[in-house]
Design a protein around this nucleic acid. Structure first.
Lengths: 115, 115
DNA sequence: CCAGTAAATCGCCAGTCGTCGATTGACGAC
DNA sequence: GTCGTCAATCGACGACTGGCGATTTACTGG
C-alpha cells in the first residue's frame, strides 16, 4: 500500500473537511441540502432549530470547508452542496475500508478522484 | 417542528465518527494502521511524534469511536483498524456526493435532479 | 519477592468551539 | 427617503479539546 504514504499537506485539508462534518447540526444542514438543493438560509434555521446567528456560523464553516456554496438571490441566499470537496475525505475512508474488509455494500471502492 | 429532515438517530453516531477522524494526528494513526496492521503503541508514538500520553488519548478516542481495536499481547498492545465502523459515515458521504448522479448501490438516495 | 517495560490515567493549562442576543449591512418595496 | 427582511458579523460566555509531564497500573522475567 504505497498510495497512502503520508502526503502531510493533504492531511490538514482532509481533517478540516472531516471537522466540518463532525457536528450534528452541520450534518443536518448537509442532509437538508441534499434533499432540497438551493434552499435559503431561513429554511435551514427552521430545520436545525438553532439561533439564526449559530446557523449562519455553521454555514460559514461549511462554506469555508468548500462543501457548500451560496448563491446570492437578492432577498436571500440559496445554498447548495459542492460534493466534489468531499472527494479527498471519501478517498481516505475508502482506503481505510479497503485494507481489511470488503463487507457492507456492493461496491468495494468508489472512485472519487476524477469527480 | 422540523418536517423535512431524516429521522435518523444515527446522526450523533456518524458525527462522533467524523470527529474521531477530524484530527491530523489521528488521521496519521489510521494511515499507519492501514499500512501496518497490528503494530504496537510505542511504534505509533514514534510515528506521530507526540507525547506518549497524547497518543494514548488519541488511541482511546479512536477506540471509543470503534474505528480501531486493541489486542492485548502482553508486553504491549497491538492495534488494528476496524473499518466497518466507518460504514455509516461513508454511506452519508456517498449520499451527499451522489445527490445528483444516482448510483447502483444499495443506498437509498433521495431523488434530486439538475446537476 | 523486586525490577523493568508498556500502556493508561491524572491534573493542569492554553486554545478553540458552540451558542446566544444584539447589531450591522445589503437590497428591494413603498 | 424610509422601512422591512434576510443574512452576516460582533462580543461574550461557558464548555470542551489538545497537549504535556507525572504518576499509576498491568504484566513478564529474574
Amino acid at each position: 500500500m504505497d498510495t497512502i504514504d503520508t502526503p502531510d499537506l493533504q492531511d490538514d485539508n482532509i481533517a478540516a473537511t472531516a471537522k466540518a462534518l463532525a457536528h450534528p447540526a452541520r450534518m443536518r444542514i448537509l442532509r437538508l441540502l441534499a434533499r432540497t438543493p438551493g434552499c435559503i438560509g431561513g429554511d435551514i434555521v427552521q430545520v436545525v432549530g438553532l439561533a439564526q446567528s449559530t446557523v449562519s456560523e455553521d454555514l460559514r464553516i461549511l462554506k469555508a470547508a468548500g462543501v457548500i456554496v451560496g448563491e446570492i438571490d437578492p432577498p436571500c441566499v440559496r445554498y447548495s452542496l459542492a460534493p466534489q470537496a468531499l472527494a479527498p475525505l471519501s478517498a481516505l475512508i475508502a482506503t481505510l475500508q479497503h485494507t481489511t474488509s470488503g463487507d457492507g455494500c456492493c461496491l468495494p471502492v468508489p472512485d472519487t478522484e476524477g469527480f
